[in-house]
């Protein structure tokens, strides 16, 4: 009698631990729309101004011109603030000119170039020529 004993090989269960690391995805970068409102840009620059010209000083400068007569109390205040805005504009544009040329130092040269390039500063050109000692145009604007 031949007894055939079936040999069953039982493999130990392999349970690999698949630990998937939970990487938190980066938060989506907010899409900032281009702000085309130039007045807001100006407002930001103007808001930085905390120092003001004394109205009495402004009035004195205004009245060096003999044609200027009486001014109301509010006028030197408004004229002074206009001057601040003008200076802010000039400083801002000369800053842009400097960056355009790859420098961080705003020199007289850059400032002159700014003035010559921008229509808004047309009335300053004659003064610049005189300062540079170039040929003085003898135009007296009465």
């Amino acid at each position: 009698m031949a007894d055939q004993v079936p040999v069953t090989t039982q493999l130990p269960p392999i349970k690999p631990e698949h630990e998937v690391p939970l990487d938190a995805g980066g938060s989506p970068v907010g899409n900032m729309g281009t702000n085309s409102n130039n007045n807001n840009e100006l407002g930001d620059v103007f808001d930085r101004i905390k120092t003001h010209f004394p109205p009495a000083k402004v009035k004195k400068i205004m009245q060096t011109d003999e044609d200027i007569g009486k001014v109301s109390q509010a006028t030197p205040v408004i004229a002074g603030r206009s001057l601040e805005f003008f200076i802010a504009l000039l400083v801002k544009k000369s800053g842009e000119m400097a960056r355009g040329q790859g420098t961080k130092r705003i020199t007289a040269e850059i400032l002159k170039k700014t003035i010559l390039n921008d229509e808004k500063f047309d009335f300053l050109r004659e003064g610049l020529c005189v300062e540079e000692g170039q040929t003085q145009p003898e135009e007296e604007s009465a």
């Binding site: 060096t64 800053g95 961080k104 009335f123 003064g127």
Partner: peptide
């Protein structure tokens, strides 16, 4: 950014020029 002394002089002169023209026009 940095501002030189020469540049500041030009700012001052430009400012005076502006205030004079503004005054004349306002007058």
């Amino acid at each position: 950014l940095m501002f030189t002394k020469d540049a500041r002089e030009i700012i001052i002169n430009s400012g005076i020029e502006f205030i004079m023209i503004l005054s004349s026009m306002a007058s």
